[in-house]
């Protein structure tokens, strides 16, 4: 077990997993795109505009999951002071920000043909926009605060505040129902999306998750080399 927590072993493992993911990520995304654009059926109300869902929904899910994971890791790091955890959340934040941006932009492109507007100050849209600011402030905090202890404290504070925003994002469509539709896919409750649409959505989600893992592992290696470079200067 201790072997798996050893930074050297983790670094070695990241190299192996990276090579493995590189083989699968592009073919899976290509299959997902073919299903999303050409094989999956049109929606009976939204028509072909529903195809935007296949990039919009996985992006939103990944950006939310990344922030939730970052918050959890920050709290763990704050309590137990485990150095390597900061490397993990630093590697996750840029991916979460990227997918948050994609979710907002594709949502806007979906909004124009279905709602008749690119943007509305709807609770879900606004809380997703606020999440982008949380990501930006979080990234700036660890980039510009050089004192590791202070940086860790501020990052934890931002991530915990951001966690409140995550709850607002999740329930905004129920608390303030305006333009954005309520959740169609529920792990605990009823899913209202047809199976023929769930397949491409699942493939795209899997492809995006592989891409997330790929970038995460590369970023993790970057952060590890940065730490090693610093220790090299002390020699």
């Amino acid at each position: 077990m201790i072997k798996f927590l050893n930074p050297s072993y983790i670094f070695y493992l990241t190299g192996k997993i990276l090579n493995f993911i590189k083989i699968f990520v592009i073919p899976i995304i290509i299959i997902g795109v073919i299903f999303s654009l050409f094989i999956s059926p049109k929606d009976y109300i939204q028509g072909d505009a529903v195809r935007i869902m296949y990039v919009h929904v996985p992006s939103a899910w990944i950006s939310l999951s990344c922030f939730a994971l970052i918050s959890f890791l920050c709290v763990i790091n704050f309590i137990f002071k485990i150095k390597s955890i900061s490397l993990i959340y630093k590697s996750l934040a840029p991916i979460g920000l990227t997918f948050n941006f994609i979710a907002i932009f594709t949502g806007s492109l979906w909004g124009e043909p279905t709602w008749g507007t690119w943007w509305a100050w709807d609770a879900r849209l606004t809380s997703m926009l606020i999440l982008i600011f949380f990501y930006i402030i979080f990234i700036l905090s660890y980039k510009f605060i050089t004192n590791p202890e202070r940086s860790s404290k501020i990052c934890t504070l931002i991530s915990v505040l951001g966690l409140i925003n995550l709850v607002i994002i999740k329930y905004s469509v129920n608390w303030w129902p305006t333009l954005h539709q309520p959740s169609s896919i529920n792990l605990a409750g009823e899913t209202t999306v047809h199976f023929s649409m769930l397949i491409p959505l699942g493939i795209m989600l899997f492809g995006f998750l592989l891409y997330t893992a790929l970038i995460f592992l590369m970023k993790y290696r970057i952060e590890t080399i940065r730490v090693k470079k610093k220790s090299l200067k002390k020699l």
């Binding site: 654009l37 072909d48 505009a49 195809r51 990039v55 594709t106 492109l109 979906w110 043909p113 891409y211």
Partner: peptide, 24 residues
């Protein structure tokens, strides 16, 4: 053309993959 929705759909996919490619 996707019955007039093509521009929105293609732009969404294109933007997503361009941003992902840039980050990679």
């Amino acid at each position: 053309l996707m019955n007039g929705y093509g521009i929105y759909v293609w732009l969404s996919f294109l933007l997503t993959f361009l941003v992902c490619l840039f980050l990679f």
